[in-house]
C-alpha cells in the first residue's frame, strides 16, 4: 500500500506514521531484550563467580573451618535424599489421586447427580445414586482444594510440617514409643520430605489430570467394548497414552520441590552436620538452605562468598539438569507414541 491517493475523499484525512509504529514495536521488543538481559546477568554472574569454585574437592568434601573452606558434599547428598523420598511419596499419590478423580468418580456434576437421586424416589438402587452424589461433591471439593493449594505460600507448608508432622505426629509417637524422649518430635528427613511432598502434590495431580483428559473417551469405549475391565483399560490404554503429560508434570513438580527452602527451614534442614544422613530420623544439609545461611548468617561474608557462589552454581546446575531431563523425556515419549510401539 503506497499512499493515501486512493482513499475516497469522504473519509477524514488519515495519516499513517510507519516510523512511529516501528518505534512502538521496537519498544515492545525491548521488553524481551530486558528480560533476556536480566537472565543473562544473573546466570552469567553466578557462572563467573561460581564456576571457579568447582573442583572435585568441592563436590566431594564436607565443609571446613566454619563453612569458609572445603566442599559441600553433605549438602548435595542431603538434597538428593530429600528429593528422592519426596518423589517416592508425591508421584504415586499424585497420579493415583488424579486417576481416582478422573476415572473413578462420576463424570457428571453434583447438580445432575442430585437431580437423579431425587428422581429415583422409591426405586431400588437409591443408595447407589446417593453414593454417586456424594462422590461428585468430593470430586468438586477436591479439585477446588487442589487448585487453591497450588497457590498457597510455601512457608505455610513449613508451618504445617512443624505443627502437624513434628509436634503432633512426631510428638505423639515419642510419647507412645519412647516415653517422652525426643526421637521423632524434631526436624528430620522424613518430615521434611513429607512436607515437600504435600507441596508438590497439587502440581502432580493437576498435570496428571490434564494428561488423562487428553485421552479421548472413544479410546476407553473401544477397550471396554472388547471386553476389558476398567483397570485393564486404564493400565493398557489410558495411562500409556497419558504418560508424556504425567512424566512432564512429575518432573516439573520434582524440580520445583528440589529448589524450595521455606518448607524445610524448620522441618529438618541444618547448616552444619558432622555426619551424613543415613536414617529417616536424621537431619540433613541442603543446598538451598546452605545458600540461605551463608547469605544471611555468615560471620564473615567475604570469606564465605566463594563457597556461596559455588553452592549456588551447583544448585542451579542440578535444577536445570532436572528440567532438561523432563523436557527430553517428554520429547522422547511423544516420538515413541507416534511410531506406535
Amino acid at each position: 500500500m503506497s499512499g493515501d491517493s486512493w482513499v475516497p475523499s469522504v473519509l477524514p484525512a488519515y495519516r499513517r506514521r510507519p516510523l512511529l509504529d516501528r518505534l512502538w514495536v521496537a519498544l515492545l521488543g525491548l521488553s524481551v531484550v530486558l528480560i533476556l538481559l536480566a537472565l543473562f546477568l544473573i546466570l552469567g554472574n553466578i557462572a563467573i563467580n561460581g564456576a571457579g569454585q568447582l573442583s572435585w574437592e568441592f563436590i566431594s568434601q564436607p565443609p571446613r573451618e566454619g563453612l569458609t573452606a572445603g566442599g559441600i558434599y553433605p549438602a548435595i547428598v542431603g538434597t538428593a535424599m530429600l528429593v528422592m523420598i519426596m518423589t517416592v511419596v508425591a508421584v504415586p499419590f499424585g497420579v493415583a489421586t488424579a486417576v481416582y478423580l478422573h476415572e473413578y468418580t462420576p463424570a457428571e456434576g453434583p447438580r445432575l447427580a442430585w437431580v437423579r437421586f431425587r428422581a429415583s424416589a422409591g426405586r431400588k438402587g437409591r443408595a447407589k445414586l446417593l453414593l454417586r452424589f456424594v462422590s461428585t461433591l468430593l470430586a468438586v471439593a477436591t479439585r477446588s482444594a487442589v487448585a487453591n493449594l497450588a497457590g498457597v505460600p510455601s512457608i505455610v507448608f513449613g508451618l504445617f510440617g512443624l505443627g502437624f508432622f513434628i509436634q503432633f505426629v512426631g510428638g505423639g509417637m515419642d510419647r507412645a514409643l519412647h516415653g517422652g524422649e525426643i526421637v521423632w518430635g524434631q526436624g528430620n528427613l522424613i518430615w521434611a520430605a513429607l512436607t515437600l511432598a504435600l507441596l508438590t502434590l497439587p502440581t502432580v495431580i493437576v498435570a496428571t489430570e490434564e494428561a488423562l483428559r487428553t485421552v479421548a473417551w472413544e479410546q476407553r469405549e473401544a477397550s471396554l467394548a472388547l471386553g476389558a475391565t476398567r483397570w485393564e483399560t486404564i493400565r493398557r490404554i489410558v495411562l500409556p497414552a497419558a504418560m508424556p503429560g504425567i512424566l512432564t508434570g512429575g518432573i516439573l513438580g520434582i524440580s520445583r520441590g528440589a529448589g524450595e527452602v521455606a518448607p524445610i527451614l524448620f522441618t529438618g534442614a541444618a547448616y552444619y552436620l558432622p555426619y551424613l544422613p543415613e536414617r529417616l530420623t536424621d537431619q540433613f544439609m541442603h543446598l538451598g538452605y546452605h545458600v540461605l545461611i551463608l547469605s544471611t548468617q555468615s560471620p564473615d561474608v567475604e570469606a564465605t562468598k566463594p563457597i556461596l557462589f559455588g553452592t549456588v552454581f551447583v544448585l542451579l546446575a542440578l535444577t536445570f539438569l532436572l528440567n532438561l531431563t523432563g523436557v527430553l523425556i517428554r520429547a522422547r515419549t511423544r516420538s515413541k507414541m507416534r511410531e506406535g510401539r
Binding site: 477397550s223 472388547l226 471386553g227 475391565t229 493398557r236 490404554i237 500409556p240 507414541m337 506406535g340 510401539r341
Partner: peptide
C-alpha cells in the same frame, strides 16, 4: 489405539 497395527488386533487376546 495409539499402538501398532498388530497390537491393536491383539489387544483383546492379550487381556
Amino acid at each position: 489405539f495409539p499402538k501398532s497395527v498388530f497390537e491393536n488386533v491383539a489387544y483383546g487376546l492379550r487381556i
